[in-house]
Nucleic acid binder design. Structure first.
Lengths: 229, 229
DNA sequence: TCACCGAATGACTGACCAGTCACCTTCCTT
DNA sequence: AAGGAAGGTGACTGGTCAGTCATTCGGTGA
Protein backbone atom coordinates (compact mmCIF):
# COMPACT_ATOMS: atom_id res chain seq x y z
CA UNK A 1 0.00 0.00 0.00
CA UNK A 2 2.43 2.65 1.21
CA UNK A 3 5.18 1.50 -1.15
CA UNK A 4 3.32 2.50 -4.27
CA UNK A 5 5.50 5.53 -4.99
CA UNK A 6 8.48 4.97 -2.72
CA UNK A 7 10.70 3.86 -5.55
CA UNK A 8 9.90 4.68 -9.15
CA UNK A 9 8.82 1.36 -10.61
CA UNK A 10 10.56 -0.19 -13.55
CA UNK A 11 8.66 -0.25 -16.81
CA UNK A 12 8.40 -4.03 -16.33
CA UNK A 13 6.76 -3.63 -12.99
CA UNK A 14 4.45 -0.87 -14.19
CA UNK A 15 3.30 -2.96 -17.11
CA UNK A 16 2.79 -5.91 -14.87
CA UNK A 17 0.49 -3.89 -12.62
CA UNK A 18 -1.40 -2.48 -15.54
CA UNK A 19 -2.05 -5.98 -16.86
CA UNK A 20 -3.08 -7.17 -13.44
CA UNK A 21 -5.53 -4.30 -13.19
CA UNK A 22 -6.95 -5.14 -16.59
CA UNK A 23 -7.50 -8.71 -15.46
CA UNK A 24 -9.23 -7.55 -12.30
CA UNK A 25 -11.50 -5.25 -14.27
CA UNK A 26 -12.42 -8.10 -16.60
CA UNK A 27 -13.00 -10.41 -13.64
CA UNK A 28 -15.18 -7.77 -12.02
CA UNK A 29 -17.52 -7.64 -14.98
CA UNK A 30 -17.70 -11.40 -15.42
CA UNK A 31 -18.30 -12.09 -11.72
CA UNK A 32 -20.99 -9.44 -11.63
CA UNK A 33 -22.78 -10.87 -14.64
CA UNK A 34 -22.49 -14.56 -13.92
CA UNK A 35 -21.87 -14.78 -10.20
CA UNK A 36 -18.90 -16.68 -8.84
CA UNK A 37 -19.99 -20.21 -9.70
CA UNK A 38 -20.86 -19.53 -13.33
CA UNK A 39 -18.00 -17.20 -14.12
CA UNK A 40 -15.32 -18.98 -16.14
CA UNK A 41 -11.63 -18.20 -16.28
CA UNK A 42 -11.87 -18.58 -20.04
CA UNK A 43 -14.24 -15.64 -20.24
CA UNK A 44 -12.29 -13.49 -17.80
CA UNK A 45 -9.14 -14.13 -19.84
CA UNK A 46 -10.94 -13.35 -23.06
CA UNK A 47 -12.32 -10.03 -21.82
CA UNK A 48 -8.92 -9.07 -20.47
CA UNK A 49 -7.47 -10.05 -23.84
CA UNK A 50 -5.11 -12.64 -22.42
CA UNK A 51 -4.84 -16.39 -22.62
CA UNK A 52 -6.24 -18.38 -19.73
CA UNK A 53 -2.80 -19.61 -18.72
CA UNK A 54 -1.60 -16.05 -18.29
CA UNK A 55 -4.07 -15.47 -15.47
CA UNK A 56 -2.12 -18.03 -13.48
CA UNK A 57 1.06 -15.98 -13.89
CA UNK A 58 -0.67 -13.16 -12.06
CA UNK A 59 -2.90 -15.05 -9.65
CA UNK A 60 -1.33 -18.32 -8.56
CA UNK A 61 -4.37 -19.24 -6.55
CA UNK A 62 -6.55 -19.34 -9.65
CA UNK A 63 -10.21 -18.46 -9.69
CA UNK A 64 -10.57 -18.05 -5.96
CA UNK A 65 -7.59 -15.71 -5.59
CA UNK A 66 -8.89 -13.57 -8.43
CA UNK A 67 -12.27 -13.41 -6.76
CA UNK A 68 -10.92 -12.30 -3.43
CA UNK A 69 -8.73 -9.72 -5.14
CA UNK A 70 -11.89 -8.30 -6.69
CA UNK A 71 -13.67 -8.33 -3.34
CA UNK A 72 -10.73 -6.47 -1.81
CA UNK A 73 -11.08 -3.64 -4.29
CA UNK A 74 -14.80 -3.44 -3.62
CA UNK A 75 -14.39 -3.21 0.13
CA UNK A 76 -11.56 -0.71 -0.26
CA UNK A 77 -13.82 1.53 -2.28
CA UNK A 78 -16.71 1.17 0.12
CA UNK A 79 -14.65 1.92 3.20
CA UNK A 80 -13.21 4.90 1.43
CA UNK A 81 -16.70 6.05 0.51
CA UNK A 82 -17.89 5.78 4.09
CA UNK A 83 -14.84 7.51 5.50
CA UNK A 84 -15.08 10.38 3.01
CA UNK A 85 -18.78 10.95 3.60
CA UNK A 86 -18.34 10.92 7.33
CA UNK A 87 -15.31 13.18 7.34
CA UNK A 88 -16.69 15.69 4.87
CA UNK A 89 -16.72 19.00 6.76
CA UNK A 90 -19.58 20.23 4.59
CA UNK A 91 -21.92 18.00 6.57
CA UNK A 92 -20.95 19.49 9.92
CA UNK A 93 -21.36 17.22 12.92
CA UNK A 94 -25.04 16.48 12.56
CA UNK A 95 -25.20 12.68 12.23
CA UNK A 96 -28.36 12.92 10.12
CA UNK A 97 -26.67 15.13 7.52
CA UNK A 98 -23.63 12.88 7.47
CA UNK A 99 -25.66 9.73 7.07
CA UNK A 100 -27.81 11.35 4.42
CA UNK A 101 -24.65 12.26 2.50
CA UNK A 102 -23.36 8.73 2.86
CA UNK A 103 -26.56 7.25 1.45
CA UNK A 104 -26.55 9.64 -1.49
CA UNK A 105 -22.94 8.79 -2.26
CA UNK A 106 -23.60 5.08 -1.93
CA UNK A 107 -26.48 5.33 -4.40
CA UNK A 108 -24.30 7.29 -6.81
CA UNK A 109 -21.58 4.70 -6.43
CA UNK A 110 -24.09 1.96 -7.17
CA UNK A 111 -25.25 3.87 -10.22
CA UNK A 112 -21.68 4.24 -11.52
CA UNK A 113 -20.38 0.82 -10.64
CA UNK A 114 -23.37 -1.41 -10.38
CA UNK A 115 -21.14 -4.39 -11.12
CA UNK A 116 -19.28 -4.13 -7.87
CA UNK A 117 -22.34 -3.95 -5.70
CA UNK A 118 -23.91 -6.83 -7.51
CA UNK A 119 -20.92 -9.02 -6.80
CA UNK A 120 -21.14 -8.18 -3.12
CA UNK A 121 -24.82 -8.82 -2.88
CA UNK A 122 -24.61 -12.02 -4.88
CA UNK A 123 -21.68 -13.48 -3.01
CA UNK A 124 -21.13 -11.94 0.38
CA UNK A 125 -24.19 -13.35 2.11
CA UNK A 126 -23.45 -16.75 0.67
CA UNK A 127 -19.95 -16.51 2.03
CA UNK A 128 -20.96 -15.60 5.53
CA UNK A 129 -22.90 -18.84 5.83
CA UNK A 130 -20.17 -20.87 4.18
CA UNK A 131 -18.75 -23.82 6.08
CA UNK A 132 -15.24 -22.64 5.29
CA UNK A 133 -14.15 -20.74 8.38
CA UNK A 134 -11.54 -18.67 6.59
CA UNK A 135 -14.17 -17.32 4.20
CA UNK A 136 -16.47 -16.43 7.08
CA UNK A 137 -13.58 -14.71 8.80
CA UNK A 138 -12.76 -12.72 5.66
CA UNK A 139 -16.31 -11.46 5.40
CA UNK A 140 -16.43 -10.65 9.08
CA UNK A 141 -13.17 -8.70 8.84
CA UNK A 142 -14.44 -6.63 5.95
CA UNK A 143 -17.73 -5.90 7.71
CA UNK A 144 -15.74 -4.78 10.69
CA UNK A 145 -13.69 -2.42 8.52
CA UNK A 146 -16.86 -0.77 7.28
CA UNK A 147 -18.29 -0.48 10.75
CA UNK A 148 -15.04 1.05 11.96
CA UNK A 149 -15.11 3.57 9.15
CA UNK A 150 -18.52 4.71 10.37
CA UNK A 151 -17.81 4.57 14.10
CA UNK A 152 -15.97 7.92 14.54
CA UNK A 153 -19.06 9.78 13.46
CA UNK A 154 -21.26 7.79 15.83
CA UNK A 155 -18.85 8.28 18.71
CA UNK A 156 -18.85 12.00 18.16
CA UNK A 157 -22.63 12.09 17.93
CA UNK A 158 -22.83 9.98 21.07
CA UNK A 159 -20.58 12.38 22.99
CA UNK A 160 -22.88 15.20 21.93
CA UNK A 161 -25.75 13.23 23.42
CA UNK A 162 -27.41 12.93 20.03
CA UNK A 163 -27.87 9.18 20.18
CA UNK A 164 -30.05 6.85 22.13
CA UNK A 165 -28.10 4.74 24.61
CA UNK A 166 -27.50 1.67 22.46
CA UNK A 167 -24.30 -0.17 21.48
CA UNK A 168 -22.62 1.85 18.75
CA UNK A 169 -21.49 -1.22 16.81
CA UNK A 170 -25.06 -2.38 16.57
CA UNK A 171 -26.17 1.02 15.33
CA UNK A 172 -23.35 1.10 12.80
CA UNK A 173 -24.34 -2.32 11.49
CA UNK A 174 -27.93 -1.26 11.18
CA UNK A 175 -27.06 1.91 9.30
CA UNK A 176 -24.83 0.07 6.85
CA UNK A 177 -27.14 -2.90 6.33
CA UNK A 178 -30.00 -0.62 5.50
CA UNK A 179 -28.07 0.99 2.69
CA UNK A 180 -27.65 -2.44 1.11
CA UNK A 181 -31.31 -3.08 1.71
CA UNK A 182 -32.31 0.14 0.02
CA UNK A 183 -30.18 -0.63 -3.01
CA UNK A 184 -31.63 -4.12 -3.32
CA UNK A 185 -35.13 -2.73 -3.00
CA UNK A 186 -34.49 -0.14 -5.69
CA UNK A 187 -32.97 -2.74 -7.96
CA UNK A 188 -35.92 -5.09 -7.64
CA UNK A 189 -38.42 -2.35 -8.32
CA UNK A 190 -36.38 -0.96 -11.22
CA UNK A 191 -36.38 -4.32 -12.96
CA UNK A 192 -40.14 -4.54 -13.03
CA UNK A 193 -41.68 -1.10 -13.08
CA UNK A 194 -45.10 -2.52 -14.00
CA UNK A 195 -46.04 -3.64 -10.49
CA UNK A 196 -48.72 -1.71 -8.61
CA UNK A 197 -47.02 0.75 -6.31
CA UNK A 198 -48.09 4.00 -4.74
CA UNK A 199 -46.74 7.12 -6.45
CA UNK A 200 -45.17 8.26 -3.25
CA UNK A 201 -43.36 4.98 -2.86
CA UNK A 202 -42.20 5.09 -6.45
CA UNK A 203 -40.77 8.57 -6.17
CA UNK A 204 -38.85 7.59 -3.06
CA UNK A 205 -37.26 4.80 -5.04
CA UNK A 206 -36.54 6.87 -8.12
CA UNK A 207 -34.98 9.95 -6.56
CA UNK A 208 -31.75 9.34 -4.62
CA UNK A 209 -32.26 12.47 -2.52
CA UNK A 210 -35.72 11.38 -1.45
CA UNK A 211 -34.53 7.84 -0.83
CA UNK A 212 -31.73 9.11 1.39
CA UNK A 213 -34.09 11.39 3.29
CA UNK A 214 -36.54 8.56 3.74
CA UNK A 215 -33.90 6.21 5.11
CA UNK A 216 -32.38 8.87 7.36
CA UNK A 217 -35.77 9.76 8.84
CA UNK A 218 -36.72 6.13 9.29
CA UNK A 219 -33.52 5.17 11.05
CA UNK A 220 -32.84 8.29 13.10
CA UNK A 221 -36.37 9.28 14.04
CA UNK A 222 -38.26 6.03 13.64
CA UNK A 223 -41.39 5.03 11.79
CA UNK A 224 -43.62 5.96 14.70
CA UNK A 225 -45.45 9.27 14.46
CA UNK A 226 -43.74 12.09 16.37
CA UNK A 227 -45.55 12.67 19.70
CA UNK A 228 -46.62 16.27 19.01
CA UNK A 229 -48.02 15.84 15.48
CA UNK B 1 -54.47 -26.14 -2.20
CA UNK B 2 -58.19 -26.36 -1.44
CA UNK B 3 -58.51 -29.82 -2.92
CA UNK B 4 -56.37 -31.49 -0.29
CA UNK B 5 -59.24 -33.23 1.44
CA UNK B 6 -62.04 -32.89 -1.08
CA UNK B 7 -61.82 -36.49 -2.18
CA UNK B 8 -60.17 -39.13 -0.02
CA UNK B 9 -56.94 -39.86 -1.82
CA UNK B 10 -56.10 -43.31 -3.06
CA UNK B 11 -53.31 -45.10 -1.27
CA UNK B 12 -51.24 -44.62 -4.44
CA UNK B 13 -51.70 -40.91 -4.34
CA UNK B 14 -51.07 -40.67 -0.60
CA UNK B 15 -47.84 -42.59 -0.93
CA UNK B 16 -46.83 -40.45 -3.85
CA UNK B 17 -47.22 -37.30 -1.77
CA UNK B 18 -45.34 -38.77 1.15
CA UNK B 19 -42.42 -39.62 -1.11
CA UNK B 20 -42.49 -36.19 -2.66
CA UNK B 21 -42.35 -34.66 0.79
CA UNK B 22 -39.40 -36.84 1.72
CA UNK B 23 -37.58 -35.69 -1.37
CA UNK B 24 -38.26 -32.05 -0.54
CA UNK B 25 -37.00 -32.52 2.99
CA UNK B 26 -33.82 -34.11 1.69
CA UNK B 27 -33.41 -31.35 -0.86
CA UNK B 28 -33.88 -28.74 1.86
CA UNK B 29 -31.00 -30.07 3.88
CA UNK B 30 -28.68 -30.48 0.93
CA UNK B 31 -29.42 -27.03 -0.49
CA UNK B 32 -28.91 -25.49 2.93
CA UNK B 33 -25.57 -27.20 3.43
CA UNK B 34 -24.11 -26.84 -0.03
CA UNK B 35 -26.01 -23.97 -1.59
CA UNK B 36 -27.75 -24.38 -4.90
CA UNK B 37 -24.70 -24.64 -7.16
CA UNK B 38 -22.90 -27.31 -5.13
CA UNK B 39 -25.92 -29.36 -4.22
CA UNK B 40 -26.07 -32.51 -6.34
CA UNK B 41 -29.12 -34.50 -7.30
CA UNK B 42 -27.14 -37.61 -6.42
CA UNK B 43 -26.92 -36.48 -2.80
CA UNK B 44 -30.52 -35.35 -2.59
CA UNK B 45 -31.62 -38.72 -3.94
CA UNK B 46 -29.36 -40.54 -1.53
CA UNK B 47 -30.66 -38.69 1.54
CA UNK B 48 -34.23 -39.25 0.42
CA UNK B 49 -33.34 -42.92 -0.05
CA UNK B 50 -34.28 -42.96 -3.71
CA UNK B 51 -32.38 -43.36 -6.94
CA UNK B 52 -31.50 -40.21 -8.84
CA UNK B 53 -33.78 -41.15 -11.71
CA UNK B 54 -36.75 -41.31 -9.38
CA UNK B 55 -36.46 -37.61 -8.61
CA UNK B 56 -37.37 -36.98 -12.24
CA UNK B 57 -40.61 -38.90 -11.82
CA UNK B 58 -41.63 -36.36 -9.17
CA UNK B 59 -40.01 -33.20 -10.48
CA UNK B 60 -39.87 -33.16 -14.26
CA UNK B 61 -37.98 -29.89 -14.26
CA UNK B 62 -35.03 -31.47 -12.45
CA UNK B 63 -32.81 -29.59 -10.06
CA UNK B 64 -34.35 -26.19 -10.65
CA UNK B 65 -37.93 -27.36 -10.12
CA UNK B 66 -36.93 -29.06 -6.88
CA UNK B 67 -35.24 -25.89 -5.73
CA UNK B 68 -38.24 -23.70 -6.37
CA UNK B 69 -40.49 -26.21 -4.65
CA UNK B 70 -38.27 -25.88 -1.59
CA UNK B 71 -38.37 -22.09 -1.82
CA UNK B 72 -42.15 -22.24 -1.99
CA UNK B 73 -42.35 -24.08 1.31
CA UNK B 74 -40.00 -21.57 2.91
CA UNK B 75 -42.00 -18.56 1.81
CA UNK B 76 -45.24 -20.27 2.82
CA UNK B 77 -43.90 -20.73 6.31
CA UNK B 78 -42.60 -17.18 6.53
CA UNK B 79 -45.83 -15.61 5.35
CA UNK B 80 -47.71 -17.76 7.80
CA UNK B 81 -45.36 -16.67 10.55
CA UNK B 82 -45.87 -13.01 9.76
CA UNK B 83 -49.62 -13.33 9.49
CA UNK B 84 -49.88 -15.22 12.77
CA UNK B 85 -47.72 -12.76 14.71
CA UNK B 86 -49.61 -9.81 13.34
CA UNK B 87 -53.04 -11.29 13.97
CA UNK B 88 -52.28 -12.59 17.46
CA UNK B 89 -54.82 -10.84 19.68
CA UNK B 90 -52.42 -11.12 22.63
CA UNK B 91 -50.39 -8.30 21.14
CA UNK B 92 -53.32 -5.89 20.97
CA UNK B 93 -53.12 -3.23 18.30
CA UNK B 94 -49.85 -1.63 19.36
CA UNK B 95 -47.61 -1.97 16.31
CA UNK B 96 -44.51 -2.10 18.52
CA UNK B 97 -45.77 -5.11 20.44
CA UNK B 98 -46.83 -6.83 17.26
CA UNK B 99 -43.51 -6.23 15.55
CA UNK B 100 -41.65 -7.31 18.67
CA UNK B 101 -43.62 -10.56 18.66
CA UNK B 102 -42.87 -11.07 14.99
CA UNK B 103 -39.14 -10.65 15.53
CA UNK B 104 -39.14 -13.07 18.45
CA UNK B 105 -41.01 -15.64 16.41
CA UNK B 106 -38.71 -15.16 13.44
CA UNK B 107 -35.67 -15.73 15.62
CA UNK B 108 -37.26 -18.85 17.10
CA UNK B 109 -38.07 -20.07 13.61
CA UNK B 110 -34.48 -19.47 12.58
CA UNK B 111 -33.32 -21.37 15.62
CA UNK B 112 -35.55 -24.34 14.81
CA UNK B 113 -35.09 -24.41 11.08
CA UNK B 114 -31.83 -22.70 10.39
CA UNK B 115 -31.55 -24.67 7.15
CA UNK B 116 -34.45 -22.89 5.56
CA UNK B 117 -33.29 -19.41 6.35
CA UNK B 118 -29.83 -20.19 5.15
CA UNK B 119 -31.18 -21.26 1.78
CA UNK B 120 -33.07 -18.01 1.46
CA UNK B 121 -30.15 -15.87 2.43
CA UNK B 122 -27.74 -17.76 0.23
CA UNK B 123 -29.92 -17.78 -2.84
CA UNK B 124 -32.60 -15.12 -2.79
CA UNK B 125 -30.37 -12.09 -3.19
CA UNK B 126 -28.46 -13.80 -5.94
CA UNK B 127 -31.73 -14.49 -7.68
CA UNK B 128 -32.99 -10.94 -7.53
CA UNK B 129 -30.00 -9.78 -9.56
CA UNK B 130 -30.22 -12.68 -11.97
CA UNK B 131 -30.56 -11.90 -15.64
CA UNK B 132 -33.41 -14.38 -15.91
CA UNK B 133 -36.54 -12.26 -15.69
CA UNK B 134 -38.75 -15.10 -14.50
CA UNK B 135 -36.49 -15.68 -11.50
CA UNK B 136 -36.51 -12.01 -10.61
CA UNK B 137 -40.28 -12.01 -10.92
CA UNK B 138 -40.57 -15.03 -8.62
CA UNK B 139 -38.50 -13.35 -5.95
CA UNK B 140 -40.44 -10.13 -6.31
CA UNK B 141 -43.74 -11.97 -5.99
CA UNK B 142 -42.66 -13.69 -2.80
CA UNK B 143 -41.38 -10.44 -1.29
CA UNK B 144 -44.72 -8.90 -2.12
CA UNK B 145 -46.54 -11.73 -0.35
CA UNK B 146 -44.55 -11.08 2.81
CA UNK B 147 -45.14 -7.36 2.61
CA UNK B 148 -48.84 -7.97 2.13
CA UNK B 149 -48.92 -10.24 5.18
CA UNK B 150 -47.55 -7.37 7.23
CA UNK B 151 -49.59 -4.57 5.68
CA UNK B 152 -52.88 -5.01 7.60
CA UNK B 153 -51.14 -4.25 10.84
CA UNK B 154 -49.49 -1.15 9.37
CA UNK B 155 -52.76 0.05 7.87
CA UNK B 156 -54.48 -0.28 11.20
CA UNK B 157 -51.64 1.53 12.97
CA UNK B 158 -51.73 4.22 10.32
CA UNK B 159 -55.46 4.75 10.81
CA UNK B 160 -54.80 5.18 14.52
CA UNK B 161 -52.29 7.88 13.63
CA UNK B 162 -49.45 5.86 15.11
CA UNK B 163 -47.22 6.07 12.05
CA UNK B 164 -45.22 8.78 10.41
CA UNK B 165 -46.62 9.79 7.05
CA UNK B 166 -44.53 7.52 4.82
CA UNK B 167 -45.49 4.94 2.20
CA UNK B 168 -46.63 1.81 4.02
CA UNK B 169 -45.02 -0.54 1.50
CA UNK B 170 -41.65 1.07 2.14
CA UNK B 171 -42.11 0.72 5.88
CA UNK B 172 -43.12 -2.90 5.50
CA UNK B 173 -40.06 -3.62 3.41
CA UNK B 174 -37.83 -1.98 5.95
CA UNK B 175 -39.33 -3.92 8.84
CA UNK B 176 -38.95 -7.24 7.05
CA UNK B 177 -35.48 -6.58 5.68
CA UNK B 178 -34.21 -5.70 9.10
CA UNK B 179 -35.27 -9.04 10.50
CA UNK B 180 -33.12 -10.73 7.87
CA UNK B 181 -30.33 -8.32 8.71
CA UNK B 182 -30.55 -9.12 12.39
CA UNK B 183 -30.41 -12.85 11.72
CA UNK B 184 -27.39 -12.49 9.47
CA UNK B 185 -25.68 -10.33 12.04
CA UNK B 186 -26.35 -12.85 14.80
CA UNK B 187 -25.13 -15.69 12.62
CA UNK B 188 -21.86 -13.95 11.79
CA UNK B 189 -21.17 -13.14 15.41
CA UNK B 190 -22.15 -16.59 16.58
CA UNK B 191 -19.65 -18.20 14.25
CA UNK B 192 -16.71 -16.33 15.71
CA UNK B 193 -17.37 -15.41 19.32
CA UNK B 194 -13.72 -14.46 19.87
CA UNK B 195 -13.95 -11.02 18.26
CA UNK B 196 -13.79 -7.95 20.46
CA UNK B 197 -17.33 -6.77 21.11
CA UNK B 198 -18.91 -4.76 23.86
CA UNK B 199 -20.78 -6.81 26.45
CA UNK B 200 -23.91 -4.86 25.80
CA UNK B 201 -23.72 -5.59 22.10
CA UNK B 202 -23.07 -9.27 22.79
CA UNK B 203 -26.07 -9.63 25.07
CA UNK B 204 -28.31 -8.03 22.46
CA UNK B 205 -27.20 -10.64 20.01
CA UNK B 206 -27.51 -13.59 22.37
CA UNK B 207 -30.92 -12.95 23.85
CA UNK B 208 -33.80 -13.02 21.38
CA UNK B 209 -35.97 -10.85 23.62
CA UNK B 210 -33.32 -8.15 23.85
CA UNK B 211 -32.60 -8.38 20.15
CA UNK B 212 -36.28 -7.91 19.35
CA UNK B 213 -36.55 -4.98 21.73
CA UNK B 214 -33.45 -3.40 20.24
CA UNK B 215 -34.77 -3.72 16.70
CA UNK B 216 -38.24 -2.50 17.64
CA UNK B 217 -36.84 0.56 19.39
CA UNK B 218 -34.43 1.32 16.57
CA UNK B 219 -37.04 1.09 13.86
CA UNK B 220 -40.05 2.61 15.59
CA UNK B 221 -38.38 5.30 17.68
CA UNK B 222 -35.10 5.81 15.84
CA UNK B 223 -31.49 5.85 16.89
CA UNK B 224 -31.58 9.54 17.75
CA UNK B 225 -31.88 10.40 21.42
CA UNK B 226 -35.45 11.25 22.48
CA UNK B 227 -35.84 15.08 22.74
CA UNK B 228 -36.63 15.22 26.47
CA UNK B 229 -33.84 12.94 27.76
C1' DT C 1 -49.99 -68.62 -10.72
C1' DC C 2 -49.04 -65.55 -14.24
C1' DA C 3 -49.08 -61.48 -16.98
C1' DC C 4 -49.03 -56.79 -16.77
C1' DC C 5 -47.81 -52.08 -15.69
C1' DG C 6 -46.43 -48.23 -13.16
C1' DA C 7 -42.62 -47.00 -10.54
C1' DA C 8 -37.67 -47.19 -9.26
C1' DT C 9 -33.06 -47.45 -10.68
C1' DG C 10 -28.13 -46.27 -11.68
C1' DA C 11 -24.83 -46.78 -15.43
C1' DC C 12 -24.08 -43.87 -19.04
C1' DT C 13 -23.62 -39.58 -22.00
C1' DG C 14 -22.52 -35.13 -23.07
C1' DA C 15 -21.27 -30.76 -21.55
C1' DC C 16 -18.58 -27.97 -18.82
C1' DC C 17 -14.49 -26.09 -16.71
C1' DA C 18 -10.38 -25.40 -13.42
C1' DG C 19 -5.95 -25.98 -13.67
C1' DT C 20 -1.42 -27.70 -16.25
C1' DC C 21 2.38 -27.62 -19.26
C1' DA C 22 5.08 -27.95 -23.41
C1' DC C 23 5.75 -24.77 -26.72
C1' DC C 24 6.06 -20.12 -28.68
C1' DT C 25 7.01 -15.04 -28.83
C1' DT C 26 9.12 -10.92 -27.41
C1' DC C 27 12.53 -8.32 -25.83
C1' DC C 28 16.80 -7.61 -23.28
C1' DT C 29 21.77 -8.44 -22.83
C1' DT C 30 26.15 -9.02 -24.48
C1' DA D 1 23.22 -10.88 -34.22
C1' DA D 2 22.94 -14.70 -31.11
C1' DG D 3 21.45 -16.51 -26.89
C1' DG D 4 18.52 -16.65 -23.30
C1' DA D 5 15.15 -15.21 -19.94
C1' DA D 6 10.59 -13.66 -19.05
C1' DG D 7 6.22 -13.91 -20.17
C1' DG D 8 2.14 -15.55 -23.04
C1' DT D 9 -0.65 -19.31 -24.81
C1' DG D 10 -4.40 -22.71 -25.57
C1' DA D 11 -4.85 -27.70 -26.29
C1' DC D 12 -5.29 -31.10 -23.04
C1' DT D 13 -6.49 -33.70 -18.67
C1' DG D 14 -9.12 -35.11 -14.99
C1' DG D 15 -13.01 -34.49 -12.51
C1' DT D 16 -17.82 -33.21 -11.87
C1' DC D 17 -22.61 -33.53 -12.58
C1' DA D 18 -27.39 -32.83 -14.81
C1' DG D 19 -30.24 -35.36 -17.18
C1' DT D 20 -31.55 -39.98 -19.91
C1' DC D 21 -33.25 -44.47 -20.62
C1' DA D 22 -32.98 -49.48 -20.91
C1' DT D 23 -33.64 -52.49 -17.39
C1' DT D 24 -35.47 -54.31 -13.14
C1' DC D 25 -38.71 -54.58 -9.35
C1' DG D 26 -42.99 -55.32 -6.97
C1' DG D 27 -47.75 -54.98 -6.42
C1' DT D 28 -52.35 -56.02 -8.57
C1' DG D 29 -56.03 -58.12 -10.94
C1' DA D 30 -57.41 -62.08 -13.72
Amino acid sequence: MATDSDTPLSRRERERRTRRQAMLRAAESVFAEKGYPHATLEEIAERAEFGKGTLYNYFEGGKEEIFFAVLDTIYDELCDLIARSVADAANGTDPRARYHALVVRALAFYHDREDLFVILIKEAYRMCFSHDASKVAYFQRQQERMVNALLPMLQQADENGALRDLPLEAIAHLLIENIDGLIVHRAIMANHPDRPTSCQHQSILDDPEKAATFLTTMLFDGVAAPPSA
